[in-house]
Design a binder for these strands. Structure first.
Length: 221
DNA sequence: TTCCGGGTCC
DNA sequence: GGACCCGGAA
């Protein structure tokens, strides 16, 4: 096994030892995962929770409930999550995809490859959102890559070229790890936690569980 | 009061 | 690279 692959396994072990299981994704139904995946685009989870609560209170946290809303009503409910106009449009496009497949179950029954393609065909669903749905709503062994993943790997010196594509980074993890959705889900959640608590855009290295300091901990940007 | 962080599309 | 948006930090 390559050095980088071993290091990715070690990184998981360290984070898991420090933080324990994260229990992602926090949602009661696959549809709720899908909605959350769209709402959390470029948005702190706290604000997504507010929007989800409002949808739930309005009885719109199901395809049948949400489809009854006008676009304007949907916009107002999800306002706390930001980008509310485009996200309302995206959710309605996702609803149409679900309807075309006769419901959430029918959609999620597609093969991983086909499901990913269908999700990516929805305007406003890109690779990270699609993969979050594949992993956390459909339970497929697909590794989710985000800004945090890139930042952490780069600072740890595990990303040779800083411009590595989404797919390249995803392959890195999928080659290094056993193809286990549970593991992938935990790993992504642990990276998010590390990024929020320590490995922020402006690093807060004090108390980082990866101490002794990582190779890049002295960089300021 | 301004600034920052965070996916996707154009 | 800019536009889309909010809440919380500075």
């Amino acid at each position: 096994m390559e050095a980088t692959e071993e290091k990715l396994l070690e990184l998981y072990e360290k984070l898991h030892a420090a933080y324990g299981p994260q229990g992602w994704w926090p949602a009661e139904t696959p549809f709720e995962v899908m909605v959350g995946a769209v709402l959390t685009q470029a948005t702190a989870w706290r604000n997504v929770e507010r929007a989800i609560e409002r949808l739930k209170a309005a009885g719109a946290l199901s395809p049948e409930g949400m489809v009854r809303l006008s676009e304007e009503e949907l916009e107002q409910l999800i306002r706390p999550a930001g980008f509310f106009r485009q996200k309302a449009r995206r959710l309605r496009a996702l609803l149409r995809l679900i309807e075309r497949h006769g419901g959430v179950e029918g959609l999620l029954a597609l093969s991983t490859e086909r499901l990913r393609a269908e999700l990516l065909s929805v305007p406003g669903i890109g690779p990270e959102t699609a993969d979050s749905i594949l992993l956390y709503a459909a339970g497929r062994p697909v590794f989710v890559v985000d800004t945090y993943t890139r930042r952490i790997l780069h600072r740890l010196g595990l990303l040779r070229d800083e411009k590595a594509s989404y797919e390249e980074m995803q392959e890195l993890f999928e080659r290094a790890l056993p193809r286990d959705p549970e593991l992938f889900g935990e790993y992504h959640a642990l990276l998010v936690r590390l990024a929020k608590e320590h490995c922020r855009a402006k690093p807060r290295c004090a108390g980082c569980p990866l101490a002794p300091p990582c190779a890049r901990s002295t960089e300021s940007a």
